[in-house]
Every structure is written in C-alpha cells, then in structure tokens.
C-alpha cells in the first residue's frame, strides 16, 4: 500500500484527526442505532397497550426513556468532537498561514539586503544624470536636423517673395491707371495675326506646365 515515494505522506496530525473522526463515526453509528431502537420500542409499547399489557409497556417505556437520555448525550458529544475537528483543521490552516508569512518575510529581507540604500541613492543619481544627458542630446539633435543655415535661407526666400508680392501690388495700382492707354494699344495690336500666335503659344506652354505640376503633387502624395 502506497510504497511509491510520491504518494501523500501521513503526518501525526492526520492520525490524530483520523482518531477523532473515527470516534465521531462511532457515535454517529450509535446515534443511528439508538434512534432505531427507540422507534422499535415505541412500536412495542403500542403493541403491548393494544393487548392491555400495561406492566410490560411501562418497563419498555423506562428503557426508551433511558435510551433517549443517552441519545442526547451522544448528540452533545458528537457536537464536541465536530468542534474539536474543526478547531484542529483551522489550527493547521493557521500554521500554514504563519509559515507562508514567515517565508514571505524572509524573502523580503533577502531582497532588501540586496538593495542597500547607498547603492540605490548612487544609482538614482546616475539615472538622473543619464536622463539629463539624454535630454541635452535630444536638444542638440533636434536643432541640428533643421540646420540654422537652412532656416536662414527659408527666411530670406520668404522675405523675397513678400517683396515681390508687394512690388506686384504696387505695379498693379500703377497699371490700373495706365489701363485705358493699354486698351487702346491692345486694340491696335489685335489685327496682327503673328502676335495672336504668340499669345496662343504662351497659353499652350502654360497648359503643358500645369499637368506636370499635378503629376508631381500626385507622386508626392503617393510617396
């Protein structure tokens, strides 16, 4: 029986609990037997009474009373044993709980020993320093990517464009003054066919340019 090493081991507590439980079982069996006996005896009493045999009925009744008395004692004892078993089982659980707490405490201690306060402080300082360095590097990197020269160029170009725009506006206001003259000139120019062709060519050129731009945009989007 259970010669294998991995089979559950029986401890002294197990044996003790078993003893108590066996006692309880015995009492339970006794309880069952007694109730059965009492039942039989009450039946007997009824039978005796129906026969008119009062004396034997009385004797049996005495026995029954005695049995009932015992039965009550047995019930109390069963209750006691049950309490006892529950207490033992709970104590075992408490023991396990204490063991668990102890183990946890030891592990915590070990871990705390591994992490000395000085070490942690220097480590934290180190980490802080490193973070600062990282931040500096970040700044440098973000600056150098969008180079200053490049930015200056952009500014210059923007200023130029602004100037041009400004100039155009100035010219336009001048042109509006000259428009009446220009119109006259245009009318004069109109009949000549050569010049018309020139204008047409210009228009075509513009048209050619536009699709290219659109294409470029598209490729840009795709990219």
């Amino acid at each position: 029986m259970g010669n294998t090493t991995s089979s559950p081991k029986i401890t002294a507590q197990d044996k003790a609990i078993l003893q108590v439980k066996l006692q309880k079982d015995k009492l339970l069996k006794y309880q069952k037997k007694s109730t059965l006996l009492i039942k039989n005896e009450t039946n007997q009493i009824k039978a005796c009474l129906s026969k008119g045999d009062k004396t034997s009925a009385k004797i049996i009744l005495k026995r029954t009373k005695y049995q009932e008395n015992l039965l009550e004692n047995v019930s109390n004892q069963i209750l006691n044993l049950e309490n006892m078993i529950q207490n033992i089982e709970f104590k075992l659980i408490e023991q396990d709980f204490l063991k668990g707490l102890q183990n946890g405490n030891e592990i915590l201690k070990k871990l705390n020993n591994e992490m000395k306060l000085d070490q942690v402080e220097t480590l934290m300082d180190d980490v802080n320093e490193n973070i600062q360095i990282q931040e500096e590097i970040d700044q440098v990197l973000s600056n150098s990517i969008v180079g200053k020269d490049y930015e200056d160029e952009i500014d210059e170009e923007l200023a130029m464009l602004e100037k041009e725009e400004f100039m155009k506006q100035g010219k336009q206001s001048e042109q509006s003054g000259q428009q009446s003259k220009d119109n006259n000139e245009l009318i004069e120019k109109l009949p000549s066919v050569d010049k018309l062709q020139d204008i047409k060519q210009d228009e075509e050129e513009e048209k050619d340019e536009e699709p290219v731009k659109v294409k470029q945009k598209k490729t840009a989007l795709l990219a």
Binding site: M1, G2, T4, S6, S7, P8, K9, I10, K15, L22
Partner: peptide, 11 residues
C-alpha cells in the same frame, strides 16, 4: 492509491 493520489490509513 495506485495513482499516488491517496494514502490509506489502517487501524
């Protein structure tokens, strides 16, 4: 018991 899941106690 054969499966090592139980241990019998004897009186």
């Amino acid at each position: 018991v054969k499966r090592s899941r139980a241990q019998l106690l004897k009186d």
